[in-house]
Write a protein that binds this DNA or RNA. Structure first.
Length: 112
DNA sequence: AGCATGACGATCG
DNA sequence: GCGATCGCCATGC
């Protein structure tokens, strides 16, 4: 495996796309899943570029369960609206029972 | 080639 | 417990 940066972003997009409805994950978890380990910022940067892809970036939050990237959506309420629509309760830009809705991408790192 | 920035995370004070 | 700082990796100028 070389430094396939495209593959890197592709991995991120693929993992985010595989997030089940009503589930969420963190930037750090994705970063670790793709091998960056501590490249959570890179994941966030990838999300910023993911607007061109059909990626449910609204299911990705920071490790506190806060909707830190809500301002990057078409509407500031788009993110929490989509999450609520999928069954995830959001209060004060924060996911309720975050660990209950948390989904670990490592669960299918062997299925990709 | 070096500096600055970012949808983060962890540690230090 | 909270605020500030450093580290991490990739991108832009």
């Amino acid at each position: 495996m070389k430094s396939n940066k495209e593959n890197l972003y592709a991995n991120i997009y693929e993992i985010v796309r595989l997030i089940p409805e009503g589930k969420v994950t963190t930037y750090g978890a994705i970063a670790k899943a793709i091998g960056l380990g501590s490249g959570a910022r890179v994941v966030g940067y990838a999300m910023n570029a993911s607007h061109t892809e059909n990626v449910p970036a609204h299911r990705v939050v920071n490790r506190n369960g806060q909707l830190t990237g809500k301002h990057h959506f078409p509407h500031a309420t788009t993110m929490e609206d989509l999450l609520k629509k999928e069954g995830v309760k959001v209060v004060a830009d924060q996911i309720v029972d975050f660990e209950q809705h948390f989904w670990d991408p490592a669960s299918l790192e062997g299925e990709i």
